[in-house]
């Protein structure tokens, strides 16, 4: 077992205080998604693993070595400092040293030129070694942050929404690179993300946090595809418009930034109101699929 984490930490939320409580075991070598609404304790969970925040009590062991052990109200028996823990950390912000080149940023983490060369090669930074962060794009900066977090050859890589500031194309490229790094280094990764396609593409497990507790611990397929009904095609939306004509009724529903129109029956027409939160769905057999064409309206342009 790679990671055993059994901790409790008091948190102060906008809707009252709650405690982050985990009782988890994560095997070596996987990529685990940490998901859930803002303020549910995801980032605190990662900070506890990295040693940037201490829990009130609990036990944390990574690959047979105890990183934290302590009881409430006492000084922890064991509490390794962040630099003693073999954990790499990448945040949404890049946190690079602006006055240092890419190479110097990597060497600051660990003075190991061979490792720096290998990681720059792996992340496609080879010809940017002497460039300062200000001249890099968002995707390149995040590659540097990722390479730097790997300089000390961590056992555990902690990623807090590392790709959420990037556009879709760059996001997809970095997801592929992350998979490549994971394959080559065999490192155990925890990644905070809200992006369902990212979870499906990268992760073998999802921990869904709600008010400090893990309310679902499943594979992405179990969480997203095997639903409570046999409808595979279901989206949460909000009713914007209801109309009646001839023998039918229609509802215009906003799903994310997309608008769709659905035919409903008279019973549904009677029970629905504008503004209602609804799920529109159909079976996996019914939707059709075709290539996007230039005359199709792309809601992501808005």
């Amino acid at each position: 077992m790679m990671l055993v984490v059994n901790v409790r930490k008091q948190l102060f939320g906008a809707e009252g205080d709650f405690s982050l409580t985990t009782d988890l075991e994560i095997p070596k070598g996987g990529i685990t998604a940490v998901a859930g609404p803002s303020g549910s304790g995801k980032t605190t969970f990662l900070r506890i693993l990295a040693g940037l925040t201490s829990p009130e009590e609990g036990f944390l062991q990574v690959d047979g070595r105890v990183w934290f052990q302590g009881r409430e109200g006492r000084r922890p028996r064991i509490n390794l400092k962040p630099q003693q823990r073999r954990a790499g950390f990448v945040f949404q912000g890049y946190a690079l040293f602006p006055h240092m080149s890419v190479m110097q940023n990597l060497l600051y983490a660990a003075n190991d030129r061979d490792m720096a060369e290998k990681l720059m090669e792996m992340t496609g930074l080879g010809n940017l070694r002497d460039v300062k962060p200000a001249q890099l794009s968002g995707g390149q900066k995040q590659r540097v942050a990722l390479a730097r977090s790997l300089m000390q050859q961590p056992e555990l890589l902690l990623l807090d929404e590392p790709l959420s500031a990037l556009d879709e194309t760059m996001k997809s490229v970095l997801q592929d690179e992350l998979l490549k790094i994971h394959r080559e280094l065999g490192i155990t990764i925890l990644i905070v993300t809200h992006d369902s396609s990212e979870i499906f593409k990268l992760c073998d497990r999802v921990l869904l946090f709600e008010k400090g507790r893990v309310v679902a611990d499943k594979t992405p397929r179990e969480l997203f595809v095997e639903r409570a009904t046999t409808q595979k095609f279901a989206f949460k939306g909000e009713i914007l418009e209801l109309k009646s004509f001839d023998a039918i009724h229609t509802a215009v529903v906003a799903i994310g930034n997309n608008l769709v129109e659905v035919v409903i029956d008279s019973h549904e027409r009677g029970s629905l109101r504008i503004g209602d939160k609804v799920v529109i769905g159909t079976k996996a057999f019914n939707p059709t699929i075709r290539r996007f064409e230039h005359h199709d309206f792309d809601f992501s342009r808005l």
Partner: peptide
């Protein structure tokens, strides 16, 4: 006829059959 079926759908379970 359906694709993947969650574990809770088993012989003897009470369900609603829905259709438009």
């Amino acid at each position: 006829i359906t694709l993947e079926l969650a574990d809770e759908y088993r012989v003897g379970a009470s369900v609603d059959i829905s259709f438009k």
